[in-house]
Amino acid sequence: MRAIIQARVPGSAPPPVLQHGFARAPGVETPRALVAGIGFRHATSADEILALVAEGLRQADRPGAQLAALATAEDRAGDRAIRDAAGSLGVPLVAIGVEALREAGRRVVTRSVRIEALRGVGSLAEAAALAAAGPDGRLVLPRIASAGATCALAASGEAYPS
């Protein structure tokens, strides 16, 4: 089972999973960490989440990109589907607390009336991705949806070039 990493309150250091420890030569661009934020219904399978992440990477023109993490709401991070999806991808699962979701929710670009009423954010997937990517994270792909899940991609630091 993969460890669940707690997201920090915005304004503090990014979650440990996203810290880069690789030395790089001057002038060599280091790829930014790419996080997939996931919202999902209880009956959603890991396969549906995996397919949606793959579709998100395809739509963002990064089909072979290496993800740094999956991120979701803290109260859903224990669900088997999201844990299995993170395990299949070989990435940590970042559990985002309510306050961090709401803080990052100020930067979402998609608004779902239902999710806003339930969670206090317009898009759980976008808020989770942005919170996990850190205070300088930017959306690479706004929320996309399948029947039972949503996915958004965010890059830490400077966003990938458009």
Results as ranks from 00 to 15, higher is better:
A69Y: 06
S146I: 10
R62E: 05
G137S: 07
A95S: 13
A154I: 03
P16R: 13
D47V: 12
L153F: 07
C151Q: 10
E126D: 05
P10Q: 06
R80A: 15
A60N: 03
R102S: 08
R111T: 07
T110D: 06
V109E: 12
T150D: 02
I144W: 12
G137L: 05
E103Y: 10
T44N: 05
G56H: 03
A7C: 15
A43F: 08
V94H: 01
A100E: 01
L93H: 01
S88E: 14
A77V: 02
G21H: 04
E126G: 08
A25P: 00
G90S: 07
R138Y: 05
G134R: 06
A128R: 00
A46W: 02
V94W: 08
L101I: 09
S162M: 06
R106P: 00
A154W: 03
E99R: 12
A100N: 02
R8F: 09
P135I: 13
V53N: 07
H20Y: 02
T30K: 11
V140A: 15
A100H: 04
P26K: 00
G56P: 02
A104V: 07
A104W: 09
V35S: 03
L57N: 01
E99D: 11
L52S: 11
D61L: 09
P16M: 10
G27K: 03
A71C: 05
A132C: 04
A100D: 02
P14Y: 06
P14K: 10
A145P: 00
R143P: 05
A23G: 13
A132K: 00
E99Q: 11
P14R: 11
D75L: 12
A127H: 12
A3T: 13
E74I: 00
P135T: 15
G11S: 05
V28Y: 04
S162Y: 02
R8T: 13
L89P: 03
P26F: 00
I5M: 08
R111H: 15
I49P: 00
L139M: 05
I49G: 09
R80I: 08
V108N: 01
V35L: 11
F40S: 15
V121A: 07
P15I: 09
A127L: 11
G64F: 12
A117G: 05
H42Y: 03
P92E: 03
R107Y: 10
T110M: 12
R114K: 14
A23L: 14
L89H: 06
A68P: 02
I82D: 07
P15L: 04
R62M: 12
G122V: 04
D61A: 14
V28Q: 14
R8E: 13
A152T: 08
R106V: 11
A149E: 08
E158D: 12
S162R: 15
S88G: 05
A13K: 13
A155E: 03
I49K: 06
V9M: 12
G78W: 08
V9I: 11
E29N: 01
A132M: 01
A145S: 09
A149P: 08
A7G: 01
A81N: 08
Q59T: 08
